[in-house]
Amino acid sequence: MPQLVFGRDAAVARTRRAAFRDGLRAVLPATVATGPWGLVTGVAMVKVGLTPWEALGMTLLVFAGSAQLAALPLIAASAPVWVILLAATVVNLRFVIFSAGLYPYFKRFPLPKRLLLGYLTSDVGFAISLQRWTAQERNDPAAARGSTEQVWFFLGIAAGNWLAWQSMSIVGIFVGAQVPGSWGLDYAAILALVALTVPMVASRPALVGAATSGVVAVAAAGFPLKLGLVAAVLAGIAAAMAADIAGERLRGRA
């Protein structure tokens, strides 16, 4: 079994297994956020009227919490299928941006593997991986992107995230509405995201970008189809870049 997963070459398998384990370890704290989200989504799918089989099929195949949650009220309202798919596409737009960030690391793989790596990309997986890889590049600018170590780190994160999401989602489907809302479990997910974000806003441009993104997200929360999320991310990136350029000019003058 380990040979099947990590390959026959002993040295390569060792590198892969170590990186995979690092990934699992890195994603473990974030599964505290992923788990409750999965639980909530599982409960929500059943509450909207999907049969347990339909809900199981949805969580195992779609594997996209925000898109699933966006689709549910539309399914409940018997909206046309194309409207549901359009809404889910917009909610998923951030992943298009993420895929551009991941491209330099995965471009050496053939198409089927790229599709699989794309499918396994999560918010948390993208954030943790890119954070680590850019730190590695700062230490060693000559390092090649998409090393075995980097890809298997990503796979370790994906595996941990997938297991946490699916297991809790399936629990949610079967336990259903019996989890009392008074536990406030859903807020643990938000606090986990807060903890994840703090180290990422260590530089001034990142802080400016994050603040801008937050303000726009609140101001645009009423936008239909979760478009406010996309607007916030774009505004945040623009602000961070502007702060970056302003900072460079100031340093250049000094």
Binding site: D123, L130, V194, T197, A217, V218, G228, V233, G236
Partner: peptide, 23 residues
Amino acid sequence: VQHALRYAPACALVALIAPEVLM
């Protein structure tokens, strides 16, 4: 563009968090 994308994760996370915390 690649440089700009480095700021994307933090922006996306804050965009998800801010409405939940502030509204």
